[in-house]
Design a protein around this nucleic acid. Structure first.
Lengths: 334, 334
DNA sequence: TTGAAAGCGCTACCAA
DNA sequence: TTGGTAGCGCTTTCAA
């Protein structure tokens, strides 16, 4: 391994000079610079960022803790984080905790020891202990989570109340008067509460609309499917099912399909999230698209701003959603 | 920021002693150890891994370069890499190149400067220049790619020839005698060549089977859909379509569905890959499952073995595939 | 414009 | 069992 010392010796200059040409930090005479550059080329010298980090106290590392990278929306967010991070010469240290609090704590410590300059936490909800640890670290941190329990933290988020309001309204405009809302956890996360509120508001704004809210245990495809089977087995007069997320919607749609109930002819189903599968599944899913890539991108952009001390950064950043109109919702207006 | 020096001073010992208790590297008397531990607790001291790296010449960093994290199979592999890596105290530096050669080169240099101890490259195919750069770095490296152009490199892979043989055979066993194989790039990657060979072998082993091979431009859903539409528009007498990957299969199935051609009643479709969507789509997709998580896990496990100099590691690691029998293939044997 | 030297926070050697 | 110290590879003063 060739070091700055070797280059200096071979070029017949001091290491200070070599440092100057590498970093372009101070004037160096043309001849000397050329000589140094030549030696660097010949030797294939590459500066050691670890040593550099030690003295500059900059790591250009940002720690990202996720629960599960195999959720497509998480991967999409991480992609946004990574790509925009690289634009500003920051690198991503990836940690996946698989919903385990102890793992999250461990990674927090790890990221601190590795001198990460900022943190991005992407997860369903965070324990108070995690929040405390994050605060202790005293590093720029941005959360993306479904449960906003601390107002002093920085979040990137979607206005899910408005989103669900708009979706519900769209369903009603399509002639639906008897709605079923499928929730994952009622009253256990701020995000879900907001969605339910948006749903209720839209329903209540229209007096002839009846609705019911049912909680399923979990928020994955499997639980959606299970509920869909239950629903198939009994008489119901809902004309539309509004799901709190796409995974549940897929599950319900498939269970209905497998039980010969036609979507959207017999009953409409809409989702929330805008996962990739929504356009592949048949009928394609009407849903709210959350801009996951952008969420990641905006999160890291703001984090870097804060790291660089550029300016005061917003604590809460709201990103726009999109209503994606596809085929799983029937227009039943006569 | 509290350093080892502060701890030493506060505990009234030398920094060597503090180092010893942190690392448990040499015997320290009980009383002294307790004192030091106490000071560490009080001050919240955390060792600086950057400084440690500099002197130990270990970074415990592994660089992972991918093309696109939003491919579900890539995310799945990275998840395997990350989780198993963490088990051995290695961290993942994530770089996503979006199919750009220059970005790949840049990340190779970056990872070198950051003192990454090993590299995992996940990509469709690699340019010779990339291969050269990788070799120059002289770091343990493992590839997962569709094009195995250099025998001296280390790969983790699937025996795709056998996999496609088995799939084709299974299709034939279900009574299909007129097959269409959809390839992405004929003769442009070793992996695709192997698949085609497996397909041909299976078809040729059975004299009454006719087949045709068609190349579509690209390997995504979109191209599959385009081809599916073309296919719908004309008369064909294939009874089964064997696709080189799941994305193309989804595209074809949906195009057929949208054109009122029923899968599998009118024509069967099978895929290759085992992406997550395959079990959500209706009819669910018969396909070959490649164990992406395991590929990542095995890759990093072997990389770490090599880094630790534990033993001689295999150059080529073949991982088992699984034939997933689902609903998109019809049994038409009479 | 250049060089010498201090020092970033730590490990590991040698001596006591 | 402990402490002193050299040094990892680099940046950055300070002086020349």
């Amino acid at each position: 391994m060739v070091t700055i010392k070797d280059v200096a010796r071979l070029a017949g200059v001091s290491i200070s000079t070599v440092s100057r040409v590498i970093n372009d930090s101070k004037p160096v005479s043309k001849e000397v610079r050329e000589k140094v550059v030549e030696v660097i080329k010949e030797t294939g010298y590459r500066p050691n960022d670890v040593a550099r980090s030690l003295v500059t106290r900059r790591s250009y590392l940002i720690g990202v803790i996720v629960n599960d990278l195999s959720s497509s929306y998480v991967a999409e967010m991480v992609k946004g984080v990574e790509e925009i991070g690289k634009m500003y010469d920051f690198d991503i240290l990836l940690c996946s905790s698989y919903y385990d609090k102890d793992a999250q704590l461990k990674y927090l410590r790890l990221l601190d020891r590795k001198q990460a300059e900022g943190l991005i936490l992407i997860g369903y909800k965070y324990d108070k202990e995690i929040i405390e640890s994050v605060k202790e670290l005293n590093k720029p941190t941005i959360f993306f989570t479904r449960d906003l329990i601390d107002d002093t933290l920085k979040y990137v988020r979607i206005d899910s109340k408005s989103a669900m309001y708009e979706m519900t309204n769209y369903v009603i405009k399509n002639g639906h008067k008897n709605l079923l809302y499928i929730s994952d956890y009622i009253d256990k996360s701020t995000y879900e509460n907001e969605k339910i509120q948006g749903f209720k508001d839209a329903a209540n704004d229209n007096e002839i609309v009846k609705y019911e809210i049912i909680e399923v245990e979990g928020r994955k495809y499997k639980e959606g499917y299970k509920f869909g089977e239950k629903l198939s087995g009994r008489d119901f007069d809902y004309t539309a099912v509004v799901c709190t997320n796409d995974d549940i919607a897929y599950g319900i749609m498939n269970a209905l399909f497998d039980n010969d109930i036609k979507v959207p002819e017999d009953v409409s189903v809409v989702g929330y999230g805008g996962y990739k599968e929504g356009k592949i599944i048949r009928p394609s899913l009407t849903t709210i698209s959350e801009p996951y890539y952008d969420i990641g991108a905006v999160a890291i952009r703001n984090l870097i701003k804060e790291i660089e001390g550029e300016e005061e950064v917003e604590n809460k950043i709201d990103l726009p959603f999109t209503l994606i109109k596809r085929d799983s919702l029937n227009n039943i207006k006569k």
